[in-house]
């Protein structure tokens, strides 16, 4: 009896001993378990690298206190012939400044040479996707834009600032998978003036875009903006479709672009794209952005 008991106790001791030993050699496991239990949701970063996919705005905004300077450039149509050097003689240029007021709110202004258009926007990050998708599976941003073209039309003296202005409201929904990000943008577009009484002033459109990471610094981008027919009856309108090759180098993001839209602002590329991929109305161009830190964090 006593021997049996002693033996059992001995077993218990040796067992406890080995158990402790195992615990000691796996301090790291203990830490990682504790980390797992106390894990806080973390925001997914870099769903998109730039503020624009090609023409569509992404859910991203400049960080708090960061100024982003953008040059967006589209040459003329590739099918405009050798006389126009296949479009390279012509260009539409947009210069833009974007600023992060907070980590969620961004404001931007821009000027395009096409129709001498001014534009401005406010973008707010409503929800941000979290790692492991436990708390928030997608990112949602709200975008409101305003644009007004100032090209003089001597034959249309009634064209005042009000008639020249258009607005868009967009819901930007995005999700990042490992090396692929997708964005869906239901859009409401309002023109203060449309060409004919049959055209609608309020237009609904749906944009879809994606970015595929090829390496840490290079990606392929595509986007398509679908506008259901029957809203704008102006002949020869096409849905805007664009592709880009994105290269990131330090503080710059560089995108080489092919699109059937020459414009880069919502009210123009969604509702006024007359180019067709099939006919070769393809506009080659690029987007370049550079960030400047205006605020010193700590």
């Amino acid at each position: 009896m006593r021997i049996k008991l002693l033996f059992t106790c001995f077993l218990i001791i040796s067992f406890t001993g080995t158990k402790l030993q195992a615990q000691d050699s796996s301090l790291l496991k203990m830490l990682n378990d504790a980390m797992g239990v106390n894990a806080k949701p973390m925001y997914v970063t870099g769903t998109f690298k730039a503020l624009h996919l090609v023409n569509m705005q992404t859910i991203e905004g400049p960080a708090n206190g960061v100024l982003n300077f953008q040059v967006q450039h589209r040459f003329g149509a590739l099918n405009s012939g050798s006389y126009n050097f296949f479009g390279l003689d012509n260009a539409n240029l947009r210069l833009g400044l974007d600023y992060g007021i907070s980590d969620r709110l961004a404001v931007g202004i821009g000027r395009s040479s096409l129709e001498k258009t001014f534009d401005g926007y406010l973008k707010y990050k409503l929800f941000r996707q979290t790692v492991a998708s436990e708390a928030m599976p997608i990112s949602v941003s709200l975008l409101g834009t305003i644009s007004s073209y100032t090209l003089r039309h001597i034959d249309k003296p009634y064209l005042n600032a009000k008639y020249r202005t258009a607005y868009t409201g967009q819901l930007l929904l995005a999700k990042k998978f490992a090396s692929f990000s997708i964005e869906l943008t239901p859009t409401l577009l309002h023109y203060n003036l449309v060409p004919t009484p049959q055209d609608h002033n309020n237009i609904f459109a749906l944009g879809i875009g994606g970015r595929l990471k090829l390496s840490n610094r290079m990606s392929l981008i595509g986007e398509y903006n679908y506008m259901p027919t029957g809203q704008l009856l102006t002949t020869g309108l096409h849905n805007s479709m664009s592709f880009a090759w994105e290269i990131e180098t330090g503080g710059h993001v560089f995108q080489l672009v092919f699109s059937n839209s020459q414009s880069m602002i919502e009210s123009q590329y969604i509702g006024q794209t007359t180019g067709s991929w099939g006919k070769g109305d393809i506009y080659f161009g690029f987007n370049i952005s550079r960030v400047f830190n205006l605020k010193k964090n700590k």
Binding site: L31, N32, M35, T45, G46, V291, N293, N297
Partner: peptide
Amino acid sequence: AFSLLLKGFVFTKELMQEHFNEN
């Protein structure tokens, strides 16, 4: 033993933090 989450590193510049994590 030590363990840390790399996303927990806070940089003075947001873009550096993004590059650190992404690239």
